[in-house]
Design a protein around this nucleic acid. Structure first.
Lengths: 118, 118
DNA sequence: CTCTATATATAGCCGAGCGATATATTGAAT
DNA sequence: ATTCAATATATCGCTCGGCTATATATAGAG
């Protein structure tokens, strides 16, 4: 139950999610995928066809930058935030919080909660 | 400042917003537009090109039903939730809250807040 | 040797949000 | 009368992002 968030729900916040996990430390695509999945308690499962184009887009927007590393046997493309990316993250996070407050209020205004059983 | 929410941010929740305002009472398109704008403190300004196709979609999905009324001089198309729409609203609201909690936690985990000045 | 997990990439489809445009009416200001 | 803004709905076509499917390659377990 409550399997996975609908694609459209994530549409507006995937960038923010990815930027957020990169704020902590450098990551490569596959590790971002795993960390988001764990952090969301399994509710976010980014398909590769979503993740990699997204990373390419963030990079072409200069929000992140990449470096190949195959010194560990595994060939991985490591990403880190640029200065621009950090600013964007901060702005997006702030905007998201306002949006969430707005939605909560909207839902709260119009959706009555079921009474506690008893 | 903080002009308007980005389109993509709303992408996944416009349905929920509209269903929410209809939960309160029957509305017509234009009034939904106005109420969302007021309720969001001006941050949500649904363009007509977004609103009406959205309403048509919700109706073709049987989540809302409509009735024309021109007895007031103004020709308006009034919408109300169907039983299916009420269920959907409840499910979407619940899902949204989970999603918000998840996002808040994600942002909280990785984004450090600026220290209070001083 | 096979199978799974790891790791990245892209083509092409689909659907939502939006700008532009169109139409029609009301009421206020000129 | 006429002009203009607000009200009220509708649709075309564009754009862009998420996803499925597909492809490639390696590591490690069995």
């Amino acid at each position: 139950m409550t399997e996975k968030f609908e694609s459209d729900l994530l549409r507006g916040s995937l960038d923010l999610m990815v930027l957020s996990v990169l704020a902590d430390e450098s990551q490569y695509g596959y590790s971002i995928q795993k960390r988001l999945n764990v952090a969301s308690l399994g509710k976010v499962k980014l398909p590769a066809g979503t993740l990699y184009p997204l990373l390419h887009r963030l990079e072409s927007d200069k929000l992140i930058k990449s470096k190949w590393d195959d010194s560990t046997g595994r060939k991985r493309k490591w990403y880190e935030l640029t200065a621009k990316g950090k600013k964007r993250l901060s702005a997006q996070a702030s905007q998201w919080q306002q949006y969430a407050a707005c939605m909560t209020s909207l839902i709260g205004n119009f959706v009555s909660k079921p009474e506690p059983s008893g």
